[in-house]
Each structure stands twice: as structure tokens, then as C-alpha cells.
Amino acid sequence: MADTGISSSSGARGAPGSVATQATLPIARKPSRLFRNLASKIALVPMILTVLVIFVGCTIWTVVHSFTSSKLLPKLDFVGLAQYERLWGNDRWMVSIKNLAVYGTCSMIFSLVIGFTLAALLDRKIRFENTFRTIILYPFALSFIVTGLVWQWILNPDFGIEKVVRDLGFESFVFDPLHSDQFVIYGILIAGLWQGTGLVMCLMLAGIRGIDEDIWKASRIEGIPVWKTYVQIIIPMIRPVIVTSVVLIASGIVKVYDLVVAQTSGGPGTSSQMPALYVMDRMFKDQNLAQGFAASTMMLVAVAIILIPWAYLEFGGKKSRG
């Protein structure tokens, strides 16, 4: 009896076991609700502080100060939407947004397509699967700084791919994305994809492996070609993995910073600027704090636009998870 009483009250297990009589145990009232489960509450202080001070507090602080005219030091003299008007009238910011749109769209599409294709290839019961996976995933262990610097070197026009191809006899071959206003963003994209597709592949492979073997038997009996099975049956079945990948890729895209710093430092000129760079330069170089806060608030809004529909789709119907 006592046993069932304890287990049914799981979740809010009481403070040190004051052994009451069997009859009163399930409804025994503790002296104060605040001190019940005290050790757990103390253990969660770091998390609660992080949530309240950093994630909630600092975010609200930044959003509030984005409506002020803070320059070198933060101050609370509100100027309404002036910072935002300035932001959207700024050429560098507009270039950043355009770059982010191009980089984001390409990165999303290519990551998903390449990631899924590679996962499907590795799923074909091949030999040396582990070797291939290890090679494709290792860039993910490297930092964006290392990634950016390596690709800066490979794309170097005087020594890299351009020179190698010209030495082969194609004298007029041009492949110098990092020094071209127009193509610099694709140079960054190449490096970004090299670093990140391994992760998408691994997620997709785990998703594909989780599918019941019977699906394959059924599709073989029906005579459906393998590629068609992947496209029409497997993709819809691994929808949750794809959604996870999309969210991961998207939040990575918005944050992209170190890669650009290492590869081009935002140049040539301002042609490879990204929102994160804009924020950092305004806040820590130009002493134009409020402008940086306004730009970072726009980044937050962008993330919210991506996340809220996802959270709604994923968790909207269900009450609990875990």
C-alpha cells in the first residue's frame, strides 16, 4: 500500500522521507511548498538564472535599447523607430540581407539535396560505409575559421584552382569568386556546404535507417524503382528528420559569422557582408550600439519567423514530449 502511494505521487516527491502512517502518507501536507524538493530547486538555480537573466533578460534589454539613441554607452532616451529606419536605409545592411537571402536559399536547398542523396547512397548496403561517412563528416569537426582559411587558400587565384586549371592549358579559365563582388557569396557557400552537409547526411541516414524493412520489401514486390521509392515513399516517411534538418540549417544560416570573417572579412568592399557582421561592427567597432541592437533585433525576428511555425507544427497538437 505504502509503495503504491509513493509511486503515484511521482513528480513531486517530497522532502526527506518523514515516515508517516500508511493512511496519511498520500495526502500528507508538508510545512511549506517552497521548501519541498529543496535540493532540486537549489540544483536548478544555475539554469533558472541562465533562463531569466541571459535568455529572457538580455534579449529584452537589447530589444528595448534598440529603440534608443545609444552610441558609445547604452542610455534610455527613446527615439522610436529611428534606428530601424536608419537600418533599412543603410546600404551595407541591404547588402547583408541580400547576401543572407542568396546564401540561405542556396545553402538550404543544397544541404538538403546533397545530404539526402549522400544518405541514400550510403544506405545502399555498400562496403566501407564507415570510411565514406567518416570522410564526409570530418569537416563538421573543424571550426569555421579553419574552414574559411582552407577555402580561401584553395580559391586563391594565384595558387589555387584557377592556376591549376590554367596550367593544364585553359589559359582563359577564371575561377576567382573571393575577389568578385558578384560571386563572393558563392565562394563562401562552397566552404559552408563543405563544412555542414556531413551533419545533414548523418541525420538523414539515421532517419532512413529507422524505416521499417517491410516498406522496402513491399516496394520491391510492387516493382517500384529504387530511386522512386526514395523520392516518393522514404522522403515523406522521414519528414520529422527533414524538419529537424531544416531548423538546424536555418538557425546556422542566420548565425553565420566566423566563416565570413575568416574567408573574406566581409570584402571585397562590403560585398560579402552578413547581418551578424553588421551587428558586430556596429556594436564593437563603430560604437554605434543602438544601431547594432536594432540589427540584432531584426535577426531575432527572422529566427522567430522560422521557428514559430515549426514549433506550432511540431508541438502544437501534443501536450508533452520527451
Binding site: 516527491r13 524538493n37 532540486s40 536548478l44 541571459i54 535568455f55 534579449t59 556594436m283
Partner: peptide
């Protein structure tokens, strides 16, 4: 193992916080 009222709520906010761009919090930190 030691849930109490509100612990799950803070955990949910913590997970949402993982998606906030770092740039938003850098200066106040």
C-alpha cells in the same frame, strides 16, 4: 527525476533560448 512545479517551463524556455542569435545577447552579457 526531481521535477517540481515550473521546472518544465524553465526547461522549455532554455531550449527556445538555444535558437536566439548570439548577437542579441552579446552586449548585455
Amino acid at each position: 527525476n526531481w521535477k517540481f512545479k515550473g521546472s518544465e517551463f524553465f526547461f522549455a524556455v532554455l531550449l527556445i533560448g538555444a535558437f536566439i542569435p548570439y548577437q542579441v545577447m552579446l552586449y548585455p552579457i
